[in-house]
Design a protein around this nucleic acid. Structure first.
Lengths: 334, 334
DNA sequence: CAGTTCAATGGCAGCGCTGCCAATTTCAAC
DNA sequence: GTTGAAATTGGCAGCGCTGCCATTGAACTG
């Protein structure tokens, strides 16, 4: 791979400073006791030599690991960047190092990546969602590290879960539509097989509508990841089949944005003629000419809290951070 | 940190399989020669024990490192998620592991993070931009690992640079405005001190205008990171001071989107009354009622190509991937 | 001033793996 | 059968650091 080798080692520093290796180690980690004079000497040697400790060696020699593995489904969705952001910010303060991988929403890939990161003996593995392959669960079960599942609490976590309930979010969205007096409601979603959380929302949503005597009028589920263009297309499809719908639930804000832009371009009055509601309350949806109704989800916070729980060595638990309905101007309130 | 210790080691596998440690190592890395019978026996033992190799130990013992450090300014800007995406995808195929950190556009923090990741003896460090503190440069200079600077080629790279020219992009934008016949041009930008690349675009842009005899009419530079609301606010400020401007160059598409939404909401005709052009050609800007004029930048590709160059152990070089003007409907062509 | 305590320090055995080298086996060609 | 080369294989010394234990003075006690 590359021939560099830490040119200078702790032993060099010890020699230069005229002290023992363990003393250098103690000073550098500020652990154990040593005199001020020694510290000064050691630091001078470190400075003079430009010594950078080798964490690989340090980690191998010590018990714990400063590594935290983070595995997300995707990076094209801002949702996961937010989570990542929250995690790394907090981890940094805890002197931990993040190792990172992307599954592309593929459970098999997730399993392979978990195996790969486990080889680095991380102190924790953070994953998104509660649905994982049997192999993934088995490996994590015997790995002896913390396992933190993010952005979902509808299920049984392996260890710690930090997030919110997608089923409750789906129900809350249905309630908003019921309260708004909508009766011909459609759903436009994205790849439901891979994004199990959007499936949970969708199911809870339709079930709640059903209970209120409002069967889902129509739906269009795109077979691809969520995007603005898919949202646009999905809404166009639905409108062609069912021109009489009065409200649409989009699987998330990217999709909703596509739908909203379609309405703007096609001159469909929102919310008079058609109500729109999304999910995630992305920043951009707060700034469109009409703010788009959505569900605000604690993404950065989830990452942050997850990292905090890990750093505090908290016991196994499920932390539900909740969500909140953002009214916006694309749905009427009764 | 945590008390887990790899319960079973390579020695256990060797014992179980009835072979030597080095043989197990050879089989597992598929390196060196061994018989099929041996392979079968070793793999059976690995399977039976659920052995996961310890890469920490492996890396310490061997020369090269499979680690690649990636340091980005931010994650809230999709631009960097794209780059990350391109890098990790390619790296994964090369059996490398990404370690990851975020600077928040802070050079001091970048320096600290470089020191931190260097402690992991990565085979390469990937950074964004060509401007780095003296300390950062010095450390990377002696680290003996590859250094890859992304998304900018306007300057002297330490080793490999993959990206495009922001100065050329700024000029191209000015040219588009000149060609469109705009004469009262304004700029709305974000924190120029921290985002040196946007500063390069801005400078080249104004200089080109100047050369064409069109001094910049007005500008508003927000002191914060780019965002939709800042773009909105910036344009509002400019319009208040200079209601007669006929075109605005936004520091990027997030800002431009804010400006565009402001126009939509305020009933300002685009591009008749006011032309808008951004930078990056984000997906969303291709789907607004009027696609927003912008500069398409090869972000995912930059990540990908950078990772490929690294994997191929390419010599030091600057790889300019170029960019392209996306006309959109928010600027008129003469 | 002897006896005790304790901060300050060095020595050294690993952590789990790889790389080198030597030993052993296999096999084709003679 | 033999012989030499090639294929297999095991042993073991580290990689650079930490953790444990022993050692050393110096400060303190009475």
């Amino acid at each position: 791979m590359n021939d560099k080798t830490s040119l200078i080692t702790l032993a060099d520093v010890a020699k230069t400073a005229g002290v023992g290796e363990s003393t250098v180690s103690r000073v550098l980690r500020n652990h154990g006791s040593f005199s001020d004079k020694t510290r000064t000497r050691v630091m001078a040697a470190v400075e003079a030599l430009g010594y950078v400790p080798n964490r690989i060696a340090g980690t191998l020699a010590s018990t714990g690991s400063p590594l935290v593995a983070i595995i997300v489904p995707s990076l094209s969705n801002i949702v996961f960047s937010d989570v990542l952001s929250g995690i790394t910010r907090t981890l940094e303060a805890g002197q931990r190092q993040a190792v990172f991988a992307v599954t592309d929403y593929d459970a098999e890939r997730e399993e392979a990546l978990v195996a790969a990161v486990l080889a680095w003996r991380p102190a924790a593995v953070m994953l998104v969602g509660l649905e994982h392959s049997a192999g993934t669960r088995r490996m994590l079960g015997v790995a002896g590290c913390r396992v933190i599942e993010l952005l979902d609490v509808d299920g049984t976590p392996m260890d710690i879960a930090v997030g919110f309930s997608h089923r409750a979010a789906g129900r809350a969205t249905a309630d908003a539509m019921i309260a708004g007096g909508y009766r011909r409601v459609a759903y436009v979603g994205h790849d439901i097989r891979r994004d199990t959380r959007s499936a949970k929302r969708f199911n809870a949503f339709t079930q709640r509508l059903q209970e209120a005597g409002i069967p889902l009028h129509d739906h269009d589920i795109r077979p691809s990841p969520s995007s603005i263009s898919e949202g646009k297309q999905g809404l166009a499809n639905v409108l062609e089949r069912s021109p009489d719908i009065d409200a649409v639930y989009f699987s998330n804000d990217d999709m909703a944005l596509g739908g909203y832009f379609h309405c703007l371009a096609a001159g469909i009055a929102v919310p008079e003629r058609l109500a729109i509601i999304g999910f995630n309350a992305l920043d951009i949806c707060r700034h469109t000419p009409q703010p788009i109704a959505s569900i605000r989800t604690p993404r950065i916070e989830a990452g942050q809290r997850a990292a905090e729980l890990f750093l505090a060595d908290a016991p196994a638990q499920t932390l539900d951070l909740g969500f909140s309905l953002v009214e916006g101007k694309t749905i009427r309130r009764e």
